[in-house]
């Protein structure tokens, strides 16, 4: 109960600060929209071929915009010196971890909800199975949040973290995002009959592994 309560308080605190400072979501959104628009101009020479690129464009956009959020995820704590205070709560460090995961999911969710319809319209695509598309995106956001929150915490006090975070994060996330791209391709495709369950299984397995491993590593970190 204490864990949940503290997680909620820390999550609410981050939302409150974001509502007042508007530091993260706005930039993530701007970055994502720019990505989709630029890719659309690059690929929209042939409408049929452009549709084939949509899954890649969508997932690259989500990966990059998610990174923008992750770079700022612990920055406020680091700059204000509150990281140690939050990590040493009466329920330990886990409420901080889960609150940051929830924040990243919320911010990425907002961006995805705005950018996906935009990309579908720009690339003139149809989404035959909305539920499956949603599941793929949700699994991607979850996995990115579990791993990204840990990597962001590991690098928060490191110099050049802006450079190091993608270098550490992207190789880790590659199975998840390859699975996401393949699954979205299959879902959006109206001609290729391919089984998506293997890719879905890969994404679920990735999320489960990091949902367990990431908080376990996080609790071993020490902050001043």
């Amino acid at each position: 109960m204490t864990h949940l309560h503290l997680t909620w308080l820390l999550f609410r605190k981050d939302l409150l600060i974001e509502a007042r400072s508007r530091e993260i979501v706005g930039f993530m959104l701007l970055f994502s929209v720019l990505c989709v628009v630029i890719f659309a101009f690059a690929f929209l020479t042939d409408a049929d071929r452009a549709r084939l690129f949509l899954p890649g464009v969508l997932w690259v956009t989500l990966l990059f915009s998610g990174t923008v959020g992750l770079l700022r995820l612990f920055a406020r704590e680091d700059e204000s010196g509150t990281l140690g205070i939050c990590a040493r709560s009466r329920a330990g460090a886990l409420p901080l971890y889960w609150s940051k995961v929830a924040v990243q999911i919320a911010f990425s969710g907002i961006v995805t909800a705005c950018v996906t319809p935009l990309a579908v319209v720009f690339f003139d695509a149809e989404v035959p199975d909305v539920g499956l598309s949603f599941a793929a995106l949700a699994l991607g956001i979850l996995g990115q949040s579990f791993v990204g929150t840990l990597c962001s915490a590991l690098l928060v006090t490191v110099r050049l973290r802006e450079v190091l975070l993608p270098l550490v994060l992207y190789p880790l996330l590659s199975p998840l995002f390859i699975g996401g791209v393949k699954m979205t391709s299959i879902v959006l495709s109206r001609t290729i009959a391919e089984d998506y369950t293997a890719w879905l299984g890969l994404m679920v397995a990735f999320d489960v592994i990091f949902m367990v491993a990431s908080p376990a590593v996080f609790t071993r970190l020490r902050y001043e």
Partner: peptide, 9 residues
């Protein structure tokens, strides 16, 4: 010696 406060709260 640092206040360690959330400045936007």
């Amino acid at each position: 010696h640092r206040p360690s406060l959330y400045l936007d709260l």
